[in-house]
Design a protein around this nucleic acid. Structure first.
Lengths: 237, 237
DNA sequence: GAGTGGTCTAGACCACTCA
DNA sequence: GAGTGGTCTAGACCACTCC
């Protein structure tokens, strides 16, 4: 992290999170910050733009940058967050149970989702997520074998994301999420503690790499009472 | 719209949408674009960054900017989109039925959501949304009266957002969305065609103005079979 | 009118990709 | 090594807010 603007971003973000810079106060002006960090104003602006995009501040022309009250916006987890990160943040007791881990010749549905040919094998991973002794999420993942040569039970029980990014060096760049509600399937009833719920919240997730190729298709199937999705949206213009 | 980078953004976005620039091809390089538009490279970069953020292109260092296949990512409506915009985009038959339009002294729940005092009145608007002759969404809106002095049935039947932004000149800057699933209330059963569904998808929406003050709290209650939410997330770094 | 953030410039150096 | 996008600079002018 030798990017100047990232260093400044992280320092300011940390100070806001720790209350060193208090909500509803104004940040130093861009010119003052440029002087303080001995850098150009454009670099400061890059850091502040990031802060604004991530919900730390609100920039107001002619006035300054106001520090937002983070506690009002807890967990803008919209983006790309793994179950492990999330579970740890909420400091819950959690466990992952791997029900299936194999390479398969995909059926037509998966082929269209993953955009692969009949002849290509894909990884299929089925995992149940248990939080506070209740199995409430069923994750069905499909990966391109050309990007993921090896996968073990241990990796699936920990975090596949960590493995892909840190071990394999894959660069995940963007994802498309779709949220819908369905009837539970037999598989849902088998692997989850459904307790009579009549619906399942399905989060379909398409994960793309830096070179725009599709890496993964995931269906995350949530028990409706334990589902919560938070999104933080800014007007672009 | 005299911002150079916005003009360039809109021109390129339009060309991508209309297929003039085809998916999976490369954009001209930043230097070439700077020359073509007779501007500096940083300005081109601003336009391209916006294109990338909105899912039009993927920038790859050392290679170039690849045009993404928009049809794969239809409707990245995540952000701040009104029901009217959405319904018109899907070109469905739609209708809005206003069930309630009044100013009230808010109860405690609304007071915490809107962060107002006991003495302040707020607007309460209850509307059912009918699409293809089925009432599938119940919208409950609460507005600060200090920002919205007047509100009529006609406005509520059309688009409150349009009124706030175009008539009142309010500058909406960001919103926090929360999606959960609940049991239907009596009100849901009364105003919606629930047809035996046991759950309601609730989208809670907090809308903030440019000066960081809270304008509106909305609960959008969807029949689960007609609910669909699409989100497009980029890794920030 | 002083100060703020928003836009724009022309140039520099870097890290990366690909032939 | 030529070309690409990523970062950074120092300076300019603008639109806006507030006194």
């Amino acid at each position: 992290m030798r990017n100047k603007f990232l260093v400044i971003y992280n320092e300011l973000a940390g100070q806001i999170e720790n209350g060193v810079i208090r909500p509803n106060t104004k940040l130093l002006s861009e010119n003052e910050l440029a002087e303080q960090y001995k850098t150009s104003r454009e670099t400061i602006r890059k850091a502040l733009t990031l802060l604004a995009q991530n919900g730390y501040i609100q920039k107001i022309r002619g006035k300054g940058s106001i520090v937002l009250d983070l506690s009002k916006f807890e967990f803008p987890v919209s983006g790309l967050v793994s179950f492990k990160e999330l579970a740890q943040k909420m400091s819950k007791n959690w466990r992952t149970i791997v029900h299936d881990l194999e390479t398969i010749y995909p059926n037509e549905e998966i082929r269209t989702h993953l955009n692969v040919s009949k002849k290509e094998k894909v990884w299929k991973v089925v995992r149940a997520r248990e939080v506070n002794n209740e199995k409430i999420i069923l994750d069905k993942d499909y990966f391109q074998t050309k990007h993921v040569p090896k996968l073990t039970k241990a990796i699936c029980e920990n975090s596949i994301y960590e493995y892909l990014e840190n071990e394999l060096g894959l660069m995940i760049s963007f994802a498309k999420k779709e949220i819908i509600v369905e009837e539970p399937t037999e598989e849902d009833r088998m692997y989850l503690d459904l307790e009579g719920f009549h619906n399942i919240v399905v989060v379909k997730n398409y994960v793309y790499l830096n070179d725009t190729s599709l890496l993964q298709y995931t269906e995350s199937r949530h028990r409706p009472d334990k589902f919560r999705f938070v999104d933080f949206a800014r007007r672009n213009r």
